[in-house]
Design a binder for these strands. Structure first.
Lengths: 245, 245
DNA sequence: GCAAAAGTGTTTGATATACACCCATGC
DNA sequence: GCATGGGTGTATATCAAACACTTTTGC
């Protein structure tokens, strides 16, 4: 079945990042009947682009659509085949496994990371109804294949990109406060930032619009809400501005 | 032949960058008997990693070894097959071509860029003895397949990386002067930099060592020679330093 | 001597860093 | 009232940008 529909030797793996109050998490799927976890992954259909493949993998494995996605690496050692792990996965899904199974072969994996607002996008177990869980990227459980390595490389890529582009807003709601924006940077870059300086710097980028509203329902003084302004951002990009933090 | 030895549907393409006095050039191979050019490319053997594949492609197509190489993109639209161009290439190499040729299929290309000092590493036409040429990246000739697009994306990736890491030294000789370093940045980033500021900034990075020698055989005052210091660089990296220009 | 490139210094404005101050809110 | 978080202001150090001065070389 897989052999006819998919490009052989090529897989897609997705690291989905989401923020909770104090940690950066990745969405993992549990291999039913084991204590092992995997990244949402899949294969490339013969008549779809690899970007479309990443989108369909995300949708079918987690139910997520319309989210920020970035390719960060393609990995492919010659030893990159995991028949034992494939067998475990097949068993957990009730799929027949043989030594000659097509998914046992050596695979090249094209890796993407996704950034989502965990309060807006609610993942599901996907079409396979798998158990899923947000796990702190600094405290990973046992993972099959080389998925722990892919996850770590994805985190490195995220940190590098975040240092140059305001992509982190994809982890926040449409309306966010400066303290929330700062917290996001602090969690991902894993260092504390100075409050006053952070706010001035962000506002100097001139890519956010301050709303008349403030965040309600929180203790203490209510912080202003801001919104990312795509037009302003494109203008600044044209001017050659940089957004390094 | 290809079908047995190589992973199907997967290719490697390399953008090799080199500097001349006033422009950034890419190394292109001419398709014999045509006026079309291609990037050095090839396929992944079934028992080699994709990094090793990139290295062997470089060596077999250009004779180059032991040079800086970076993966920057994997591209793969479902329409990414080029039977007409494959036929031209086969004809120019005296290889039999049929409609069913394995290289006609849809291919995913894993793309790398290489940075070389054009005075140290001398490319050849490779095992196929093809005509090769350094061409200004801002003035590309007719290229087969989507190689012009790959080249442009490689240049974009180079610019982005150069803004964060001192990788440009791979385009220069081991010993280089500050004016040479500046010129390299100016050519790649396509903007002029202020001389005094540039020198202070580079020296503040504290990753270069000034030698007792000066560049000889040039008119006017002789500039000092510098050398990249890997230890210093690793120290600064550990301290969390950034090298953005 | 003159022109040109390189090394270095100076001036001014912008940004980074650290911290202070006041305001709004819940308790 | 008090603690806490948020908005804003201030002082100092550092860096950026522009430019000047001096040295060294070829002609």
């Amino acid at each position: 079945m897989g052999e006819e529909n998919y490009l052989p030797h090529v897989s897609i793996d997705c690291v989905i990042f989401g923020l909770t109050d104090n940690s950066l998490n990745a969405l993992l799927l549990k291999v039913t009947g084991t204590e092992s976890w995997v990244l949402p992954g899949g294969y490339v259909e013969k008549d779809e682009s690899i970007e479309d493949a990443a989108l369909h993998v995300l949708k079918s494995r987690t139910g997520l659509t319309d989210i920020y996605l970035k390719q960060f690496m393609t990995t492919g050692n010659s030893e990159r085949s995991f028949p034992d792990d494939v067998r475990r996965i097949c068993e957990s899904l009730g799929i027949e496994w043989t030594e000659g199974h097509w998914a046992n072969k050596r695979f090249i994996s094209i890796c993407y990371y996704a950034l989502i607002d965990v309060n807006k996008f609610k993942p599901t177990g996907g079409e396979l109804e798998q158990e899923y869980q947000w796990v702190d990227i600094h405290n990973l459980p046992q993972m099959l294949m080389d998925h722990d390595n892919i996850l770590r490389k994805g985190y490195e890529a995220l940190k590098e990109n975040l240092g140059n582009h305001p992509i982190g807003i994809n982890l926040l709601p449409d309306k966010f406060t400066m303290p929330e924006l700062q917290k996001m940077y602090e969690i991902i870059l894993d260092k504390t930032l100075e409050r006053s300086h952070f706010q001035k710097k962000m506002l100097r980028f001139d890519i956010f619009r301050r709303l008349e509203e403030r965040r309600e329902g929180v203790p203490h003084k209510r912080p202003f809400l801001y919104r990312f302004d795509e037009n302003k951002y494109q203008n600044e990009l044209k001017k050659g501005a940089r957004f390094d933090v």
